[in-house]
Amino acid sequence: MATEVLVPLAGSIWEILVEVGDTVEEDDELLVIEALKMENLVYAPCDGTVSEIRVKKGDTVEDDDVLMLIKE
């Protein structure tokens, strides 16, 4: 089952630190969201493999948008 990684705070995608197929552990850094000129790290909610990334660098994201899917 895939777990959705949700946007924790609205902003724009500053940098994506993983690629599709990467294996991640819970609390690994996935990407950076810039809000109010501050870079905020988003962490993996669970262990698994990144199966899909739905955003790209520079995208504006709203609260609770889906950023990526992680397959456990």
């Binding site: 924790p8 705070l9 609390d27 809000a35 109010l36 905020n40 790290l41 962490y43 609260d63």
Partner: peptide, 26 residues
């Protein structure tokens, strides 16, 4: 604005790195 809100975010993240207080602090 928004320095105080940023500081809140930072201090909050020190305690729990998955806690995002920035927008609440605004």
């Amino acid at each position: 604005v928004p320095m105080a809100a940023r500081v809140v975010q930072k201090v909050g993240a020190e305690a729990d790195k998955k806690n995002y207080l920035l927008m609440f602090a605004m």
